[in-house]
Design a protein around this nucleic acid. Structure first.
Length: 703
DNA sequence: GATTAGTCGATTTTT
DNA sequence: TCGACTAATC
């Protein structure tokens, strides 16, 4: 253990220290207060764009300048992006000492600590972290052990099962309660679900696996059940900062408090109005409860906004004014600008897309770079129509949120291979890898796993005559050799990835028509592996902090080119752009249909609306299409449905004063002609009807 | 026991 | 559009 100054703020012989940074000048009064107050519990309520990150960064720098050892500062953030960004800015502000600050997401921090103390909890320190998909596969497999009456009433899907179990853990409630609150239609299945949850736990424990929730649960266990460890850690991390506190769940709040138990130097920063992760167990009441855990908490509120113009803020303030529960705050700004948020009703989704393309091109003409503009939406698939339109206008874009790189089938396949190359006793990875082989299905796969993994015989057993006489021996041998060579040599992660890829490419070509696109993804995977020394670290990061997204949906691949951002609102959190377009502001889309049942869910959707609109610095466009494809449900696919503007719009008093209403007029470019021809009126009178000719032709030439 | 075709059905957000 | 599940075929 290192020495740390007992009370660095008022250290020896105390003249005010000479600081490199002039804090009082760089910060406003509240921010400066929050930065200065380094001892004791502190809650900072930071409105959107109020310089929250800035405050954290300056505070970290201030601590270091006060002589605090950077390694005793722990900065828990929500995403790795956020943590990297903060450390980068702190280093820029002060110097490299800031790079030594400890930090990351709760999950990655838990991982680091648990690798050191796994023994205390009877885990081996090379435990594997599994992602949601793995959990689902395990649960699905275990479901077979339960003797459910076949074709009885429907038992929840694997996805739902995992959701239920996870929610029970993250909200600290028994499964019964979760079912009663959120899944009443499955209440009858409670005994089986509880049984399944126990089997799932046992399975993970015996196999040395941890899912996302286990990381938190086990860290909390470590801290509560092992007093000396808790004390040691708490003394090691003498200053703890938690970002986005409104999105922490009960477990995380407890972990933060336990870590601070020896000194209470805990600063949490958050904004209850931006809490959008309740579905994952987040409790924005954690913010309200914080002063209850630490009674002498100092509360600071940051209300000056440094991001948006006043007209935009007037609008966003009005959104949150209609929220049911919130800490009172009223954001103001000194940024000049008269442009009110623009509200426009488009005829349909297509018109909405074309309006956006047109406006984006105009803004680019005016000198706004593409990467200073973003289109936001509620769920990943809401942007499909827009993506087509962007492609046809050659507007390059990146998309955040939605299907992630590591969730695509081909990446999961290669990851599974890497996992058995790393650990030949990883049953789930075996299962997936085996099913890739020609002639191998669930039955044979289980047979192999029973011998290799369960009976602990290892992959070598597959060389025995018992297996080599089977039809499938050829396939099995190449897989066995792939693993054997990994065990025999010390390959780097990149080399391993390359070998896995070479092995996998023929399979990829056989299974997917679009294999070249997927090959790009896999080559990217190899490049990512190059950054790692250890395969274990690579695999862990892949599940814990996966790379942004897959190549599949993006157009341009030039890396330097500026790109428009498409993002789900969730993934847009913490980011900002010059101009923001919020599309599909329609009931059933922005309050999503699924959340209309319960008032708290609707309130969370409202906060989502708030988060989206507060991303805009200069210009905000709100779009409501009046006609929709019927959400893509097969029955409605060819039909359209009338939609109502989002109820959140009606909720805003003086909506028409706060916004500027635009009627969409599309310029006549080449698009004018395309519109008339390719809109769904093609089959109508007038247009030359090739289709009819063709069908006639085929009808005539039958037999 | 594996594979394939074909049907039905359901779709939020993420560490 | 995609995946999960079923029934027919190899």
């Amino acid at each position: 253990m290192k020495n740390y100054p007992l009370n660095p703020a008022h250290g020896e012989g105390d003249k005010p220290r000479q600081h490199k940074i002039n804090y009082a000048e760089a910060l406003n009064e509240q921010q400066w207060q929050a930065v200065q107050q380094i001892e004791g519990p502190q809650l900072v309520i930071a409105g959107a764009g109020s310089g929250k990150t800035r405050t954290l960064v300056y505070r970290v720098a201030y601590l270091v300048e006060q002589g605090v050892d950077p390694e005793s500062i722990l900065l828990l953030t929500f995403t790795r992006k956020a943590s990297r960004e903060m450390l980068r800015r702190a280093a820029l502000l002060l110097d490299d000492r800031c790079q030594r600050i400890q930090g990351g997401t709760f999950h990655s921090f838990a991982n680091t600590i648990l690798r050191q103390y796994a023994g205390h909890l009877n885990y081996a320190d090379n435990f594997t972290i599994i992602d949601r998909g793995d959990s689902e596969d395990i649960v699905n497999m275990l479901r077979g052990e339960l003797n459910l009456d076949k074709k009885q009433r429907r038992f929840p899907k694997k996805r739902t099962l995992v959701e239920i179990m996870s929610k029970s853990i993250n909200t600290n409630r028994p499964i019964m309660e979760v079912l009663a609150d959120d899944y009443p239609h499955f209440l009858d299945d409670e005994p089986q679900i509880v049984d399944l949850a126990q089997r799932y736990d046992r399975f993970k424990r015996t196999k040395g696996l941890m899912d996302y929730d286990d990381l938190l649960v086990n860290l909390r266990r470590l801290l509560t059940e092992h007093d000396q460890v808790r004390r040691k850690l708490s003394r090691q991390f003498k200053y703890i900062l938690v970002d986005e506190y409104q999105d922490t769940n009960l477990l995380q709040a407890m972990i933060a408090a336990l870590l601070a138990s020896e000194h209470a130097n805990l600063m949490v920063v958050g904004d209850d109005s931006q809490s959008i992760y309740a579905f994952r167990g987040a409790q924005f009441k954690n913010i309200m409860d914080f002063p209850k855990i630490f009674p002498n908490t100092r509360v600071t509120t940051l209300e000056q906004n440094y991001r948006s113009t006043q007209p935009i803020l007037d609008f966003t303030n009005a959104i949150i004014a209609s929220a049911k529960e919130k800490y009172a705050k009223n954001l103001f700004s000194e940024i000049t600008g008269e442009q009110k948020p623009v509200y426009s009703q488009a005829l349909n989704e297509r018109e909405q897309s074309r309006f956006i393309c047109q406006r984006i091109l105009e803004l680019r003409e005016e000198g706004i770079p593409l990467d200073e503009m973003a289109v936001l939406f509620r769920s990943g698939w809401h942007s499909t129509e827009l993506e087509i339109e962007l492609n046809s206008h050659n507007i390059p874009f990146v998309k955040y949120g939605g299907m992630k790189f590591t969730e695509t089938a081909h990446v999961k396949d290669v990851t599974a291979l890497l996992r058995i190359m790393f650990n030949p006793f990883d049953a789930i990875a075996w299962y997936r890898s085996l099913l890739l082989l020609e002639g191998v299905g669930p039955a044979i796969a289980r047979e192999v796993i029973d011998q290799v993994v369960e009976a602990q015989k290892g992959p070598e057993i597959l060389a025995s005559p018992e297996w080599s006489n089977r039809k499938i021996s050829g396939e099995l041998t190449s897989l066995r050799l792939l693993i054997a060579e990994s065990t025999a040599h010390q390959f780097s992660p990149a080399e391993e990835a390359k070998r896995a890829l070479d092995y996998y490419l023929p399979i990829l070509k056989k299974n997917y028509d679009d294999y070249h696109k997927r090959t790009h993804d896999l080559e990217a995977l190899v490049r990512i592996a190059e950054r790692y020394q250890e395969l274990e670290a690579f695999l862990t990061d892949l599940t814990l902090e996966p790379p942004e997204n897959s190549q599949i949906d993006t157009t341009a691949t030039d890396n330097d080119e500026k790109k428009l951002v498409l993002s789900t609102i969730h993934s847009a959190k913490g980011l900002e752009w010059h101009s923001v377009f919020l599309i599909n502001l329609v009931d059933g889309f922005l309050p999503a249909t699924q959340s209309l049942q319960r008032e708290e869910d609707i309130e969370e959707e409202r906060r989502l609306f708030y988060v989206a609109t507060t991303r805009a610095k200069q210009q905000l466009y709100l779009l409501t299409p009046e006609l929709e494809r019927g959400g893509g449900m097969s029955f409605f696919d060819t039909h359209t449905v009338f939609t109502l503007p989002s109820r959140f719009i009606q909720d805003i008093e003086k909506f028409s004063e706060l916004t500027e209403q635009w009627t969409i007029t599309l310029k006549q470019e080449e698009s004018e002609t395309t519109e008339e021809k390719s809109d769904d009126g093609t089959a109508d009178d007038g247009a030359p009807n090739f289709l009819k000719n063709i069908t006639d032709f085929f009808n005539e030439h039958r037999n």
